[in-house]
């Protein structure tokens, strides 16, 4: 008998409205607020302020 090969369908294949979690975006916004770049003699230093 002929062998049948199949792939498990991925339901999210068709889903177009995929968005990241709210917590990921909140993290990024908080990270951005905390990150400060300090210029010193043409050098740039990053500092994360809490």
């Amino acid at each position: 008998m002929q062998k049948m090969y199949s792939e498990t369908p991925r339901p999210e294949h068709v889903e177009k409205n995929l968005v990241p979690k709210g917590e990921t975006i909140k993290f990024l916004l908080d990270y951005s607020k905390a990150l400060s770049v300090i210029d010193y003699n043409k050098l740039k230093f990053e500092a994360l302020l809490n």
Partner: peptide, 23 residues
């Protein structure tokens, strides 16, 4: 095709964006 991996890569992408813009 993995929500958690996609989430991580999305986060890393914007961390790069933020650092580049801030610099």
């Amino acid at each position: 095709f993995d929500r958690d991996v996609a989430e991580d890569i999305f986060q890393d992408t914007f961390i790069k964006v933020i650092r580049t813009l801030k610099r």
